[in-house]
């Protein structure tokens, strides 16, 4: 745990320097640090049956940045998340993942790209109930070759899953082997976080991941999520209506949306 905290701090220093890149020698930066993970330009989307509309004029998420997208309940946050993750395509504007627009890819290609580069955390029902915590964490590695490869490089699939769970405060072997259906909500959300992070995806998209947690657990959850995301150089975009989360984030954006 200590060791990991240390690594996290190191990564943290290195990572947090990235957004202030002007000060740093460009040659020392890796390519990924320069890459825009998620870019949104002039996005607008409306469901055909409703007069409701969401829009983002400009958003550029770089690796190891943590963004909070704020919007009141009913402002279409879940829809936005599907747009960012390439599940839905916008009617106007575009969403780019690692420099490539979702719209230029076929549905199957989007599925593959999403599996390789995006981890998801939802408000609840995150886990496959009949699998153990550790099996749930390993699920993305079953469907994405690159994430499996990356997790294996981190010292073996299961070891990596155990490391992540431990880092997120689920170190007890008994809990790691427990079936997801029998974990507490807080534990489930942490398993979901470990699963979103395994295999170093470029981006984690989270939809109200803390709303089922109480205030104390909320802060702890975010802290653990951020520290692991930093060490993996994974960008986080979290959508929430909860403005009290704002202090945890360096960057936030309030959604333009509503009835038009």
């Amino acid at each position: 745990m200590n060791e990991q905290a240390e690594t996290a701090t190191e990564q943290d220093l290195e990572g947090s320097s990235a957004p202030r890149a002007e000060k740093v020698d460009a040659a020392s930066l890796t390519k990924s640090q320069l890459t825009s993970v998620l870019a949104v330009k002039h996005l607008s989307f409306a469901w055909p049956s409703s007069s409701f509309q969401i829009g983002i004029t400009d958003l550029n998420v770089k690796s190891d940045e943590h963004w909070l997208l704020e919007g009141p309940s009913g402002s279409g946050k879940s829809t936005l998340l599907q747009l960012l993750g390439g599940v839905l395509l916008p009617q106007r504007g575009e969403v780019q993942i690692l420099g490539q627009s979702w719209a230029t890819l076929s549905a199957a290609q989007r599925d593959l790209r999403r599996a390789d580069h995006v981890g998801f955390i939802f408000q609840q029902f995150n886990l496959v109930p009949y699998l153990s915590a550790i099996e749930n964490v390993l699920l993305p590695c079953r469907f994405s070759k690159s994430r499996r490869q990356s997790a294996e490089n981190g010292g073996g699939l299961k070891d990596e899953a155990r490391r992540l769970l431990t880092a997120l405060g689920l170190g007890a072997k008994e809990i790691q082997l427990r079936r997801a259906a029998r974990l507490s909500v807080g534990q489930q959300q942490r398993v979901a976080a470990a699963r979103a992070l395994i295999g170093n995806p470029s981006l984690v998209l989270a939809d109200e991941p803390t709303s089922a947690l109480d205030t104390k657990n909320r802060a702890a959850f975010l802290e653990l999520l951020f520290s692991e995301a930093r060490s993996a150089k994974t960008a986080i975009v979290l959508v929430s209506h909860d403005t009290s989360l704002r202090p945890h984030f360096e960057r936030h954006l309030t959604l333009e949306g509503g009835l038009c």
Binding site: L112, A115, L139, P140, R142, F143, R147, R195
Partner: peptide, 16 residues
Amino acid sequence: RHEMAVLRAVGARPRH
């Protein structure tokens, strides 16, 4: 239904 959505979210394609 939840389970299927979860599987989709972790990278399973509809044919999976």
